[in-house]
Amino acid sequence: MGIEGKLEAELELKSTVDKLYKRLKSEIHHAPDASSDKIHAIEVHEGDWETPGSVKLWTYTIDGKKETFKEKIEVDDETKTVTLVAVDGHVLERYKNYKLIIQIVPKEDHAVAKIAINVEKHSVNVPDPHDYMQFAMGIVKDIDEHLVAQAQ
Score class of each variant (00 low, 15 high):
residue 2 G to H: 04
residue 3 I to M: 11
residue 5 G to Y: 03
residue 5 G to H: 04
residue 5 G to S: 05
residue 7 L to Q: 06
residue 10 E to L: 08
residue 11 L to N: 09
residue 14 K to L: 08
residue 14 K to Y: 03
residue 15 S to Y: 02
residue 17 V to P: 05
residue 18 D to G: 03
residue 18 D to N: 09
residue 22 K to H: 06
residue 23 R to E: 12
residue 25 K to V: 07
residue 26 S to T: 07
residue 30 H to K: 12
residue 31 A to I: 15
residue 31 A to G: 01
residue 32 P to L: 09
residue 35 S to H: 11
residue 36 S to M: 08
residue 38 K to H: 04
residue 38 K to W: 04
residue 39 I to Y: 06
residue 39 I to Q: 05
residue 42 I to D: 00
residue 42 I to K: 08
residue 43 E to A: 12
residue 43 E to P: 02
residue 46 E to K: 10
residue 48 D to T: 05
residue 49 W to C: 06
residue 50 E to T: 10
residue 50 E to V: 08
residue 53 G to I: 06
residue 54 S to D: 02
residue 55 V to K: 04
residue 59 T to A: 07
residue 60 Y to I: 01
residue 60 Y to T: 03
residue 60 Y to D: 00
residue 60 Y to H: 03
residue 61 T to N: 09
residue 61 T to C: 05
residue 63 D to E: 15
residue 65 K to L: 05
residue 66 K to E: 11
residue 66 K to W: 00
residue 68 T to Y: 07
residue 68 T to H: 04
residue 71 E to T: 14
residue 72 K to R: 13
residue 73 I to D: 00
residue 73 I to E: 03
residue 73 I to Q: 12
residue 74 E to H: 10
residue 74 E to Y: 07
residue 75 V to E: 03
residue 78 E to Q: 11
residue 79 T to R: 05
residue 79 T to K: 10
residue 79 T to P: 01
residue 79 T to L: 00
residue 82 V to A: 13
residue 86 A to G: 15
residue 86 A to D: 10
residue 88 D to W: 07
residue 92 L to Q: 13
residue 92 L to I: 13
residue 93 E to C: 06
residue 94 R to F: 10
residue 96 K to P: 02
residue 96 K to I: 13
residue 99 K to V: 05
residue 99 K to T: 09
residue 102 I to L: 06
residue 102 I to V: 15
residue 105 V to H: 07
residue 107 K to N: 14
residue 108 E to A: 09
residue 108 E to G: 02
residue 108 E to W: 08
residue 109 D to H: 08
residue 111 A to G: 14
residue 114 K to R: 13
residue 116 A to Q: 10
residue 120 E to T: 13
residue 121 K to I: 08
residue 121 K to P: 04
residue 121 K to C: 13
residue 122 H to E: 12
residue 123 S to T: 14
residue 123 S to W: 11
residue 124 V to G: 03
residue 125 N to A: 11
residue 126 V to S: 06
residue 131 D to K: 15
residue 134 Q to W: 02
residue 134 Q to C: 10
residue 135 F to V: 06
residue 137 M to Y: 03
residue 139 I to T: 07
residue 139 I to Q: 00
residue 139 I to H: 05
residue 140 V to R: 00
residue 140 V to A: 07
residue 141 K to P: 01
residue 141 K to E: 07
residue 144 D to W: 08
residue 146 H to M: 11
residue 146 H to V: 03
residue 150 Q to A: 14
residue 151 A to S: 12
residue 152 Q to F: 05
